[in-house]
């Protein structure tokens, strides 16, 4: 238990950061019109693709002869990139569709 508390003590700065980010997220999202719910979800989906940065770090850490880590890490990089690239492209297509509608009417 002491170790757990120590960990929290050492990372207090990060924990502050985390809590403030949570509040910021709530604040940023409020007042969003209902039509934008799906594109916003999709955009947020692309943003959490930052995990790919973690996957790249894992790969940079891995020893060149640790084939298991390399294989799993490679998979992680592919999946993370899918999340980022696919997410942003899908969101862009959705929003493109939104833009055309008001012009027609």
């Amino acid at each position: 238990m002491e170790q757990l508390l120590n960990y929290f003590g050492e990372n207090m700065e990060m924990i502050y950061f985390l809590i403030l980010a949570v509040l910021l997220g709530v604040e940023v999202i409020s007042n969003v019109p209902a039509i934008l719910h799906t594109p916003l979800m999709s955009g947020a989906n692309a943003i959490h693709g930052v995990v790919v940065v973690g996957a790249i770090i894992v790969m940079l850490h891995a020893a060149p002869d640790n084939y298991l880590a390399l294989t799993v890490g490679f998979l992680a990089v592919v999946m993370g990139t899918l999340n980022v690239v696919g997410g942003f492209v899908v969101t862009d297509r959705m929003l493109e569709m939104f833009k055309k509608k008001p012009k027609k009417s």
């Binding site: 719910h37 947020a44 959490h48 930052v50």
Partner: peptide, 23 residues
């Protein structure tokens, strides 16, 4: 992000975590 002390992962992730829940 917490594991690596990586601020970009932390912000991106937690922002989506909280905004996603509200959404």
């Amino acid at each position: 992000g917490f594991l690596y002390g990586n601020k970009a992962m932390l912000t991106g992730g937690i922002l989506v975590g909280s905004a996603g829940t509200i959404l």
